[in-house]
Design a protein around this nucleic acid. Sequence first.
DNA 1: TTCGGAAACC
DNA 2: GGTTTCCGAA
Length: 143
Amino acid sequence: RSHPCFAFPDWAYKPESSPGSRQIQLWHFILELLQKEEYQGVIAWQGDYGEFVIKDPDEVARLWGIRKCKPHMNYDKLSRALRYYYNKRILHKTKGKRFTYKFNFSKVVLVNYPLLDMTLSSPSHPHLGCRILLWYRLKMKEM
DNA sequence: TTCGGAAACC
DNA sequence: GGTTTCCGAA
């Protein structure tokens, strides 16, 4: 059921793990929803490696609005925030698939561990970032 | 629907 | 800096 490569270490969900901002970030929130089975009707992993579909855009926006205390949040605004992730290489759009985006797993690590940049930059090893995420999860369990 | 500029907000 | 808000264009 749960793909091992879609497992993320606990720090990936903690806002305090992102240096520079103490507020929860949207991609943290997205991962948080994807992690919980109760939201599979709203947002879920689907299709290609790292790809997810927003099945209920209005509901995701509503939940995000609650979290950020922005009662007028909607999908139009939320999706603009997601588009800002394109240049940052945290996400990209899966063209042709409605409400479908794809995580760049390597970047998820890079954001939190800039020193790993060189090891993860290789486009010829797209799964390397995932393996390192799993490795960190094991490391965190040991501590 | 999706995109990205521009300005505002915190 | 990371959105939020607004919006014209494709």
